[in-house]
């Protein structure tokens, strides 16, 4: 318990640093936001007035804490290019990306765990086939998989209509039906990695003494596998899976572009191109918070599963 509190403190501290770095980065950016808003032929008076209006004339730390305070309350500022609150721009997109992340994570877990066990348990040619397939799958960049999936399932088989994405709020299952393809593109390399991890974890455990002992006592191999080995072998995979969530969110930036999905990634990308810094800042910080949070949760789960870690 004490440990959890300490970890929680660490997490908050990391979040604070993250937010500070993000704020700092967007302060030292070359170019003045007033330029973006007013254009180049604005008078100095107009610029001054806008600076005061945006609060740019106050000291750095005042601005930082002011920004942070608003941020945690859900006020992410105003977009330069669309003059609307950033939170309004995010509201619809957050759900889409989250759904995409959840789908690809679910896919990863649902496929990789049975396949990993199968691979380790059966051995032989199946194991080898899976290993080779996995190795190749890991080398295919998700956006290339995405391109192939769009072509095969979108244009040849017509299982979905590329570009005809419906928001989850409008038609949830329609949305899922569309997102399953980008989710697959993101999940495939993750599945391959998790399978590999799980497989070597299980094989490592199977060679341990306690397994041999159990064996010599006449316990069934399957029983040992499911009763003892899995529990231990799964621990490193859980940590890995948690990190996957972080990567999935990052991977969505590219994948959303491939599948024309209006999510956080597309928003981030177009805001970067438009130099719409308040939006970029908000998306980046939210994503980083998300990653830190996920790592924290993974840590906690690990502790539950592996009592040894609690002592540290």
């Amino acid at each position: 318990m004490k440990h959890a509190v300490k970890k929680l403190g660490m997490m908050l501290l990391t979040m604070l640093i993250v937010s500070f770095l993000a704020f700092l980065a967007f302060q030292v950016i070359p170019g003045d936001p007033t330029n973006t808003i007013l254009g180049t032929d604005a008078t100095p008076e107009q610029v001054e007035a806008l600076r005061a209006q945006l609060g740019l004339d106050r000291p750095f730390f005042v601005r930082y804490f002011d920004w942070l305070f608003r941020f945690v309350q859900g006020d992410f500022g105003t977009s330069y290019s669309y003059s609307m609150p950033v939170s309004d721009m995010l509201s619809g997109k957050l759900g889409v990306t989250l759904l995409l992340a959840v789908l690809s994570f679910t896919l990863t877990v649902l496929v990789s765990i049975p396949v990993g066990i199968l691979s380790a348990d059966c051995g032989g040619w199946l194991d080898k086939a899976l290993t080779v397939t996995g190795q190749i799958t890991m080398a295919v960049p998700p956006f290339f998989t995405g391109i192939l999936l769009t072509y095969l399932f979108g244009l040849i088989l017509h299982w979905f209509t590329p570009g005809e994405f419906v928001a989850p709020g409008v038609d949830f299952w329609g949305s899922v039906a569309y997102l399953i393809f980008p989710a697959t593109a993101i999940a495939l390399p993750r599945i391959a990695m998790t399978v590999k991890m799980l497989r070597s974890g299980i094989l490592g455990e199977l060679n341990k003494d306690y397994v041999r002992t159990a064996h010599s006592r006449g316990n069934d191999r399957k029983a040992i596998l499911y009763r003892h080995v899995l529990r231990n072998a799964v621990v490193p995979s859980v940590a890995f899976l948690a990190m996957t969530i972080a990567d999935i969110v990052a991977g969505s930036v590219v994948i959303e572009q491939v599948f024309a999905i209006p999510g956080m990634g597309r928003l981030l990308f177009s805001s970067i191109s438009n130099r719409d810094y308040p939006v970029v800042q908000a998306v980046i910080v939210l994503m980083a918070f998300w990653v830190v949070l996920v790592n924290f949760v993974a840590d906690m789960i690990n502790q539950r599963l592996d009592p040894r870690l609690r002592l540290q």
Partner: peptide, 19 residues
């Protein structure tokens, strides 16, 4: 009016029947 700022996405959408 649907906005497709990516030329490829635009063609995909046309081919797929979204436009």
């Amino acid at each position: 009016y649907k906005i497709y700022e990516d030329a490829t996405a635009l063609v995909m959408a046309l081919k797929g029947g979204a436009i």
